[in-house]
């Protein structure tokens, strides 16, 4: 074996080792129904979706979770549980017009205060709280029981001459709780 070959092989092994050594990563993958915690399955079953439910396992820095995704009545539902099947939240994709006018006004004025210009890409309403309360809320569209409502909005925002994508969490009346910049996955293999 030539020295050049050894050098190149050594370099490749070094880089692969380097990348395997990094343990911080996020991952999401489909899982079969058998691997879904029973309480999570029962909860989603009781919502009586007619469409097929896709189950995912998510690994991230904040802990792992199990998520059910389904499209029903032209709306995308995402129901998240912890790995033991305890309900975390229910997210439903919304149109801007479905938010109450006064909440829309608050959201807009808060976005204007944070960005020189903005464009809304995606809106989700997020419900959390007691599973039984949420169950009656989703099934009947309303409930007198207590639950928490938040809005998760993906916004293209410009500030200090830089354009980025942000995920912004709002309270039920449109006040900002959290702003997180969305970091895109590497696009080098699509550009070069």
């Amino acid at each position: 074996m030539s020295n050049k070959f050894l050098l190149v092989t050594g370099f490749i092994i070094f880089v692969i080792q380097l990348s395997f050594g990094q343990t911080k990563y996020e991952k999401e993958y489909r899982i079969p129904l058998e691997e879904v915690p029973m309480t999570a399955r029962l909860f989603v079953d009781s919502l009586n979706f007619s469409k097929k439910i896709k189950w995912y396992y998510e690994e991230n820095l904040l802990g792992n979770s199990v998520e059910a995704k389904v499209k029903s009545d032209q709306k995308k539902y995402s129901i998240e549980f912890d790995t033991l099947g305890k309900l975390q939240d229910i997210e439903i994709q919304l149109d801007w017009g479905e938010i109450l006018p006064e909440v829309r006004r608050n959201i807009t004025s808060n976005l204007k205060a944070n960005f020189t210009s903005h464009k809304i890409y995606k809106i989700q309403i997020q419900y959390s709280g007691n599973p039984q309360n949420l169950l009656s809320l989703i099934k009947r569209g309303t409930t007198k029981e207590i639950y928490t409502t938040r809005y998760e909005i993906v916004v293209k925002g410009r500030k200090e001459k830089k354009v980025n994508l942000y995920e912004i969490t709002f309270t039920d009346n449109g006040e900002i709780i959290d702003i997180a910049r969305i970091i895109f996955r590497n696009t080098d293999n699509l550009e070069f």
């Binding site: 990563y25 996020e26 991952k27 999401e28 993958y29 489909r30 995912y56 996955r185 293999n189 699509l190």
Partner: peptide, 20 residues
């Protein structure tokens, strides 16, 4: 024009395969 599809889940994550 190039399209990239994960072979698992909805996004291409580390230690996963994709089709491009």
């Amino acid at each position: 024009i190039a399209a990239e599809l994960p072979l698992n889940g909805e996004a291409v994550d580390p230690r996963e395969f994709y089709f491009k």
